[in-house]
C-alpha cells in the first residue's frame, strides 16, 4: 500500500505549503540565475559568443586590453600561421544620430574574419538595442573623432560589451579615430594555452572575461546570490522535513510497533519529497521559461533550459540529502515511544 500517497492525499494543505515553499525558492533562484546570465551577456556577449580559443594581448599591458598594442609584424606572422585567427580592437565611444542625440557604444573592429562583422569604410553595424532607440538602417551617424560619417548598414542581435551596445566599424576608420596603427588583441579559435608567442600573454575565454572591468565582481556577486539561495533552499528542505518528521514520531513509532520496516518509512519520506519537489520544480521551470519569453526587452534576462535543468537537478539532490538527513531520526524512533506519546 502506498502510505506516502495516502498521507499526501489526506493532508493536502500541509504538503501544499511545503510544495509552495520549494516552488517559490526554486523560482526565485531561477529568476536570479536568469538575471545573472542576462547581466553577464549584457556585459560580455561579444566575447561569450566566440568559440573556445585563446586571446592574446601584449605582456606590457598587464592584463588591461585597453593598454595592449600588438605590433604589426607579430600580428601578420600569427594571422598567416593561423588562418582562422583574427586581430581586433575594442574602444568605448559615442555616435551622434540625425537628431544629434548621443549614444554610448563600444567600437569593435577586426581583420577579415567570420567571428566579427566586417564592414567597409564609412559603414557601421550596430547592436539591435540602438534600433529600439530610433536608429534605422541608412541613417547617418557621426563621431567627433571621425572626420567622415557612418552609414548604418544593419543591426545584430544581442552584441554587448561592458553593458554598452557594440558598433562594428572598418579597421581603417578605427585607426583614424583612435590615431593608432596597431590592434589590441588577437584571437585564435580552438587554440589552447600551450600556444604562446613572445611578448604576448595568452588568455582562455574564461580568463579573458575576467579582464573586463567589473565583470568578475558583478558575476561573483550574482553567483554568490544564486548559490546562497541554493544552500538556503537545501537548509529549508531539511528543516521542513525535520519538522514534519518530528510531528510524525508517534506515527513512526506505532508503525514500527506493528512491524513496518524502517526502510519502508524512509521510502515513504523519499516518495513524498520526490512528488512535492517534482511538481514544484516543473511549475517553477515552466514559469521561469515563460518569464524568459515575456521579459521586457530592456531587462537583461537570459535563462537557458539547460541552466534551469541543471539547477533543478541540484535542487533534487539537495532535497534528497536534506530529507534524508532530517529522516535519520526515524531510525532512532523506538516502537515504545508510540505507546508513551499518546495519540498520533
Amino acid at each position: 500500500m502506498n502510505i506516502a500517497w495516502k498521507e499526501m492525499k489526506k493532508n493536502k494543505a500541509k504538503f501544499l505549503i511545503l510544495g509552495s515553499i520549494v516552488f517559490l525558492i526554486s523560482l526565485l533562484t531561477f529568476i536570479i540565475s536568469g538575471l545573472a546570465n542576462g547581466l553577464s551577456d549584457d556585459n560580455a556577449s561579444l566575447i561569450k559568443d566566440l568559440p573556445e580559443g585563446q586571446f592574446y594581448m601584449s605582456e606590457d599591458a598587464e592584463q588591461t586590453y585597453n593598454l595592449s598594442t600588438i605590433d604589426n609584424e607579430t600580428q601578420d606572422q600569427i594571422l598567416s600561421e593561423h588562418t582562422d585567427s583574427t586581430a581586433f580592437s575594442i574602444q568605448r565611444g559615442f555616435v551622434n544620430d540625425n537628431d544629434d542625440k548621443q549614444h554610448g557604444v563600444v567600437f569593435v573592429t577586426s581583420t577579415d574574419s567570420n567571428l566579427f562583422k566586417n564592414v567597409d569604410s564609412g559603414e557601421i553595424i550596430l547592436d539591435r538595442s540602438l534600433k529600439d532607440d530610433g536608429i534605422k538602417v541608412g541613417d547617418t551617424l557621426t563621431n567627433n573623432q571621425f572626420d567622415d560619417t557612418f552609414v548604418v548598414k544593419g543591426f545584430v542581435a544581442q552584441k554587448k560589451y561592458s553593458h554598452s551596445p557594440v558598433a562594428y566599424i572598418n579597421t581603417a576608420d578605427y585607426k583614424q579615430m583612435y590615431r593608432t596603427e596597431e590592434m589590441q588583441l588577437i584571437f585564435i579559435p580552438d587554440a589552447n594555452d600551450s600556444l604562446t608567442f613572445s611578448g604576448l600573454e595568452s588568455f582562455s575565454n574564461k580568463a579573458f572575461l575576467q579582464t573586463i572591468p567589473s565583470y568578475s565582481a558583478e558575476q561573483m556577486s550574482l553567483n554568490m546570490i544564486v548559490w546562497f539561495l541554493v544552500v538556503i533552499s537545501g537548509m529549508l528542505f531539511a528543516i521542513f522535513f525535520y519538522m514534519m518528521n518530528v510531528q510524525k514520531i508517534g506515527l513512526y513509532g506505532i508503525l514500527k510497533a506493528i512491524g513496518v520496516k524502517t526502510s519502508t518509512l524512509f521510502k515513504m519520506m523519499w516518495t513524498q519529497m520526490l512528488v512535492i519537489t517534482s511538481i514544484a520544480l516543473v511549475l517553477s521551470v515552466l514559469l521561469s521559461q515563460l518569464f524568459n519569453q515575456v521579459a521586457p526587452e530592456g531587462m537583461p534576462f537570459s535563462l537557458s533550459i539547460m541552466t534551469t535543468i541543471q539547477l533543478a537537478i541540484v535542487f533534487f539532490v539537495i532535497g534528497f540529502i536534506g530529507a534524508t538527513l532530517s529522516g535519520l531520526q526515524i531510525r532512532k524512533v523506538g516502537p515504545l515511544q508510540a505507546i508513551q506519546q499518546g495519540e498520533v
Partner: peptide, 17 residues
C-alpha cells in the same frame, strides 16, 4: 511482531490518514 503478534494500546494509535 508483524506476523505473530497483535497490539492494542491504551490509545487506539490508528494511522490518521
Amino acid at each position: 511482531r508483524a506476523k505473530e503478534f497483535g497490539f492494542v494500546f491504551q490509545s487506539s494509535h490508528l494511522v490518521p490518514f
